[in-house]
């Protein structure tokens, strides 16, 4: 759930999504769900001539399973906070494993 929460903090930022079929789409992150399906607004395709079918498209819903990379705006990522959250989640899972 950590990455779901993480992506939620990036809403309304510009991101570039690279898909497994090599298309890169840049746009404003509008929404994300538990499967990391992603919704982008005001999109531009990085190599438009190669993918002419997306020229008349303004916003996309990308299925999480076809994403290869998400390029993030470095300024919008709070790395210490993310490290903290990771440790806390790890501690929680560890504690749960001990109980079970």
């Amino acid at each position: 759930m950590l990455f779901f929460s993480f992506f939620k903090t990036l809403v309304n930022h510009q991101v570039t999504i690279e898909l497994k079929n090599d298309i890169s789409i840049r746009g404003t992150l509008k929404s994300v769900d538990q499967y990391l399906n992603i919704k982008l607004d005001d999109i531009t395709v990085v190599e438009e001539m190669k993918y002419p079918h997306l020229s008349s498209v303004k916003n996309v819903f990308i299925r999480g399973s076809v994403v290869r990379y998400v390029h993030l705006p470095a300024a919008a990522v709070d790395t210490p906070l993310l490290e903290d959250a990771t440790r806390r989640e790890a501690a929680q899972t560890g504690a749960k494993a001990k109980q079970g």
Binding site: E48, P52, S56, V57, N59, V60, I62
Partner: peptide, 23 residues
């Protein structure tokens, strides 16, 4: 079937069916 979908794009009706130049 959902697993076969890669992406869904809403078509901007203002530029409906716009296909860039050389095509």
């Amino acid at each position: 079937r959902g697993e076969n979908v890669s992406l869904l794009g809403e078509i901007d009706l203002d530029k409906d069916d716009y296909i860039p130049e050389p095509f």
